[in-house]
Design a protein around this nucleic acid. Sequence first.
DNA 1: CGGGCTCTTGACACAAGTCAAATCGCGTGG
DNA 2: CCACGCGATTTGACTTGTGTCAAGAGCCCG
Lengths: 243, 243
Amino acid sequence: MATLCRNCPIRKRRIFAPMTRREVAFMERFKAGEMSVDAGTTLLIEGSNSPQLFTVLSGMGLRYKTMPEGRRQVVNFVLPGDFVGLQAGVMREMQHSVEASTPMRLCVFRRDELWSLFRDHPERAFDLTWLAAVEEHFLGESLAALGQLDAIERIARAFVKFHDHGQALDLVTGGEMRLPYTQQDLADALGLSVVHTNKTLRKLRDQQVASWQNGKLRVLSYERLCDLGQLDPERVPLQRPLI
Amino acid sequence: MATLCRNCPIRKRRIFAPMTRREVAFMERFKAGEMSVDAGTTLLIEGSNSPQLFTVLSGMGLRYKTMPEGRRQVVNFVLPGDFVGLQAGVMREMQHSVEASTPMRLCVFRRDELWSLFRDHPERAFDLTWLAAVEEHFLGESLAALGQLDAIERIARAFVKFHDHGQALDLVTGGEMRLPYTQQDLADALGLSVVHTNKTLRKLRDQQVASWQNGKLRVLSYERLCDLGQLDPERVPLQRPLI
DNA sequence: CGGGCTCTTGACACAAGTCAAATCGCGTGG
DNA sequence: CCACGCGATTTGACTTGTGTCAAGAGCCCG
């Protein structure tokens, strides 16, 4: 039996904006059920018009676009609390695919209820827009990273983001965080070749800044990492709504 | 005296989704007035919490982020029909700046009415989310371009986008479209240096594919341009809502 | 034990950046 | 009306970051 939203395992994390009891109650109606998938499953596929909206409860994945020549751009990494499928919800169809990198547990919503969300729950509708704006913000940041930073800076920045996001979600234990991706995934996200990504990772390891081996990310010098990634180590992570 | 929305000069363009009479009526209440600015004006500034939302009626501009080292990433180019300021509307503050590249005329909305839009006009609220999703889609495309394409391909793609967008807005006259940007602007958008951008533009000119001089873009071979930009020349431009 | 992914490293090629200088265009002021 | 100055555009010479190719090592799973 699916968990009730009021007992949602991730709702209380401080990264998420708090919800009123009434909102939680509506979400329970909006929720269609839960779904578990194996690592490697494609949840949503580019060009499809999937009838489902998900919130990630656990596990990690990635969003990507494929180019005509077979190259792939990883748009971002999907972590618990992320909402996927909004594009198909409001536009005709998905413009990217979403794939599970680990087994994932997902909260499934009824797309046909999306309209009632807008009609009857303006606060939630507002949150949805907020979410889309936050997403847009992150994409803008990634764009700036690809456009303006070199390889080591991009990787450093990505690691800082992972680390912070992981911290906010309590995914960091003993200074380590599980990053279930391949170097190819990271390379495709940062617009680098695997080979160069690999060599750059080695540099970060050699300089004792951060290491990522056996699927575990270990930040050795948060200072240096932020410095490389051109991020302010003091910046406050922005809160976002959970749908 | 400001134009009434029912007479809005850009509403009828086919790129925009049609509006019901009731929606138009609401927009007239939502609208606070109009504003005209000179070229070079900064409309919104990164980190500020501007109280205004705009829809561009005429003129062009650009959205950009500045990096700590003084580099700049142009996030996208702002054309008539674009809605700016949504980020400040739903999040704390703007994450990017918006600057006018030509004189611009803007439709100004009251931010404090944003909430009533969500409360009383779910269809418009939906459109706002739709808009955010469309925006996100475009950023994803740009990300893929920066990550996966080389200089000539990126520029070709940018030109195709400009050309199509311009066509949809009736900005192309006599095979020419006014592009009031500097090569530095384009370079900052595509993650290239001005020098290399310049040399690549020359290649496109020499190969009779496209030329951009004196602020005028001239597409000589749409076929070749799409081919270079890895875009399907037959793809349908996606419709979007006008706010 | 073998096949297929990843990950790693080295050698080499090439796209793109940097530096520098000349030219062009345009608005301003003498 | 012309001289000046400033920003944008062009071009060449050189440097360097990153990609490609290739081959080997490690590892997991059947």
